Amino acid sequence: MSTLQTLVPPVGYIPDFLTPAVPEGGLSGALEEVRATPPDRLRRDLARLRTTTPLPSWATGLGRPGGRGLRSLTKVLEVSSRALLEPRWDHIRQAVSEEVDTRSRVLLDGGVLALLESLHPFAQWRPPVLEVDYPAHRDLHLEGRGLLLIPSYFCWRRPTALADPALGPVLVFPVTARPLDVSPEKGNRLDRLLGRTRASVLVEVARGRPRSTSEVATAVGIAPASASYQLTVLRDGGLVTSRREGQHMRHAATQLGHRLLEGDRARLH
């Protein structure tokens, strides 16, 4: 873990070579891409990291000819992935899959404009510029290249992008819904803040895919009219977002809603 903490600081730049584009091959394909990082790119990424993060000698020597640095690093990545991520991978994949499904429906229903507008509050579409809530001021010109949108379970609070403008343009943004195991208990803070019924409604729409009003009503055990009213109040408070799909309204918790739940002893799978 100390190796990863050195190269992946909690804030700021993360070397681009650690996040390769791997359309197929999963973990093994990604590790092979990292292992095959060209020395000049490795030195460039580490030099950029060194401007904000002190690096020990082993890190600066990763790209040294004849060294075992990259092989050792990929072994660390493999071991940590197996130990930390693999037991939770089904939940992580479910959250990302549901995000892709949601954004795909938006794209099919409303086109590219609706998709870009759906990125609010992380980003705002001001033609011809997509303004992104980003920790540093920078301009990324597509110059005819497409922009790849990547929902990530591990991206929190705000989107991120590759630092090297020569790499394929990507925008990594937080998944809206993470699989939650949350059950409001009598007397907890969420109940006191929202009321038990409204808290239960918020918990229900935070579970995976967007829910219809009738599905929320059935799950919580209240009348559809009551569910509709509670959802309206939560939506007005910025905790829920709603979108019409055919004859039904689909509801999901916003990032603010998820943060409220996570702050109330929610346990992420």
Rank of each mutant, 00 (worst) to 15 (best):
V201M: 11
L113M: 06
A161D: 09
L115P: 04
S97V: 13
T254N: 12
L85R: 05
D40C: 06
F17E: 03
A114M: 11
T37K: 02
P151D: 07
S72F: 09
T60L: 14
G187M: 10
V129W: 00
G26D: 12
A177S: 14
V203D: 01
P54E: 11
L261D: 02
A253P: 10
V233C: 12
L261A: 06
A95G: 15
L148I: 11
K75R: 08
L27R: 03
L62R: 01
L261V: 13
P10A: 14
L148C: 04
L62P: 01
G195M: 07
Q255W: 10
P20Q: 05
P224Q: 10
I150Y: 00
G12W: 04
T60E: 14
K75Q: 08
S28R: 12
P87A: 10
E143F: 05
E32S: 15
A114F: 08
E262C: 06
D164V: 04
F173A: 01
G263A: 14
E143T: 00
G263W: 00
L116K: 01
G238W: 00
A59F: 06
A59C: 10
V201F: 05
I92A: 08
A199N: 02
L49V: 10
L202Q: 04
W89H: 14
W89G: 04
Y13D: 08
L190Q: 02
A199G: 08
D109Q: 12
R196Q: 13
V170F: 05
R88W: 07
P165I: 08
V8Q: 07
R103K: 12
L55R: 01
R209D: 13
T53G: 05
A36G: 09
H120G: 14
L162R: 02
L18R: 01
L256T: 08
V129M: 08
S226V: 15
P23A: 09
P87D: 10
S214H: 09
L167W: 02
R209A: 15
E215R: 05
Y134V: 05
T176P: 00
G208Q: 04
F122S: 07
L148K: 03
